[in-house]
Design a protein around this nucleic acid. Structure first.
Lengths: 337, 337
DNA sequence: TTGTACGCGTTATCAA
DNA sequence: TTGATAACGCGTACAA
């Protein structure tokens, strides 16, 4: 770990000169000196001490990526294919921009804030915030923040959000199902907040637009925690005969449901149609292949990161981005006409 | 962002006293002062500047997690369920130990080394290293390093490795297949190095132990890159009639193969038996459910992190860990007797 | 029990 | 074109 000071001593010059060369301030240095310094830097394989640099410049070159885990979900958030694909896109963007990614998962918003201020991150990417979490963080932390998939009416004033037209996506799919002759369509989710609520709204809106009356009993609740999932899937399967189809809030749930159904001798799509949302690997690698609402998850991560980086540089960006969805018609919704 | 100096001024005392209280060196400070300082710290919500602290102590509290991506694989490494589950375990362990995780993905070992020295990470977790990559890094970087799933005869002297009894796992599975009446069993993989080679060895050893002669043509090569995968799967499917079963090097490939087969009207396990390796979500959520070799991926991540943390603290640890495998018999290998 | 002063490695200002 | 020197915020030896 050689330092600038040491290099300066070795080369019999000042730290300023060395530093100038390192930063390409060539206008200030004679070509001969530049050459000498550059050669020496290469020879000793100089690596700047990032702590010293950050201290001097009051920056960090770190993008904090904070995922808020929900208490009622899996212990391992990254196992959700949606999350891992998102992180993949984010990591790539951060790296390409010459920044560094510090990943932090927590159930506790306070912990996240502490983490963020400790590292004095240059910007923050937030996922999994519900209700006022995002606002709380952005009020406390004055650096740029971009949320992903956060719905909050008040929040719109406080933070930038990169989201999806969730409502439209679900609306389109349910409309499609109705056009294929489905009438009694259930909605499967684990909760009714944020993204899930938006998707639910699109679902309900499509039903109503086609003169189908939504009944509360059409909401099928899955409990994703390890110890509850089997039981809740069993309950759901028992109710399946009541319906023509199920709109699932995610591919993961759609596939879990299809497995449970198959284990009970129920055939998809002959006995019941299933639609998913997200278009992850899980649905693509299922047979029958899952009919689903596509979103470009990786792109979402990239876009959120790009906006954040622009904000860090002080550039203008949109305050809200809503990515489009696309219907992917595969084999789990059957025509019942 | 209040500093110690400022607090000291406000409270009319020295920075040393404030610092001492922060670090719980209470033996040196009067109870009254402690109270005053602690209250004030809470009031202003003091957060230490980590850069200054790290600079002064020449540490970082960061664990670097470097994934080496292979050029011939997917662009998005995290999409592999195995990788994301592993990272999930690692992140949890790092966080619980009060450290921070900096994730870095690259195809270039040099880049990884630069990243590591830049941040002066306290320890390094390495995944995806092949051949001498691990050695190169550990020779250059003098802080503790733990590799995950790296095979290298020379490497054993240089670095700690947390791995799996890959050979035994594959051996057991192929043995089981043979006992179920399979004779011509192919091996599906994308390469023949590291982990894949070990698994292949177990496969071959099981064949030979049962008097079955392995022929080179039994190696089925899949090309995982987006643009090649369809073609390579097509080629593989054409060769399936030659075999009784296929031992796949990963669940991911097993599931991809099963989808390709189903699309071509080939039934698993009636027409051909398929076995996987890893026991990820993908195989669990497939029907027929995948018969596979289980490994506790999350545990692998946790164990690697724990060993690294012990090394950082200067404690003794084993140099090599080999986690066990377990056969998971589900529905994709049929009895052919 | 409390305070002074310096070092950590870098950047930046200003003088030479 | 180059060189002193002062910050940046924290930790700590040593002095008071």
């Amino acid at each position: 770990m050689i330092t600038i000071k040491e290099i300066a001593t070795q080369l019999n010059m000042s730290t300023t000169t060395v530093s100038n060369v390192i930063h390409g301030k060539t206008g200030e240095v004679s070509p001969a000196t530049i050459k000498i310094v550059e050669d020496y830097l290469k020879k000793v394989d100089y690596v700047p001490n990032i702590n010293a640099r950050n201290l001097a410049q009051n920056q960090s070159k770190i993008i904090g990526v904070a995922l808020k885990a929900r208490a009622d979900k899996y212990e391992n958030l990254l196992m959700d294919p949606f999350v891992s694909e998102l992180i993949g896109g984010i990591e790539e963007s951060i790296r390409n921009a010459g920044y560094f990614m510090m990943l932090y998962i927590s159930r506790d918003t306070n912990e996240i804030m502490r983490h963020v201020s400790t590292w004095n991150v240059d910007g923050l990417l937030l996922f999994g915030m519900i209700d006022n979490d995002g606002i709380r963080v952005s009020e406390r932390y004055k650096k740029p923040i971009v949320c992903i998939d956060t719905y909050s009416i008040e929040g719109l004033k406080h933070f930038i959000n990169v989201g999806l037209n969730d409502r439209q996506g679900c609306f389109d799919m349910v409309n499609y199902m109705i056009k294929q002759g489905h009438k009694k369509i259930a909605f499967l989710s684990d909760n009714m907040r944020g993204v899930d609520y938006e998707r639910f709204s699109g679902y309900k809106y499509a039903l109503e637009g086609n003169g189908i009356h939504y009944d509360e009993s059409w909401f099928l609740q899955i409990k994703p925690k390890n110890e509850d999932i089997e039981k809740s899937l069993d309950d759901i399967c028992k109710r399946i005969p009541e319906f023509d189809g199920v709109m699932c809030v995610s591919d993961l749930y759609a596939v879990q449901l299809m497995c449970a159904l198959k284990d009970r001798g129920v055939n998809v799509p002959e006995d019941i149609s299933i639609a998913g949302f997200d278009d992850t690997l899980l649905g693509q690698l299922h047979r029958p292949a899952l009919t689903t609402v596509h979103q470009d998850v990786k792109q979402k991560g990239i876009m959120a990161t790009d906006i954040l980086l622009k904000r860090i540089k002080g550039e203008k960006t949109p305050k809200q981005v809503q990515l489009p969805t696309e219907l992917i018609i595969r084999d789990t919704v059957k025509c019942r006409l």
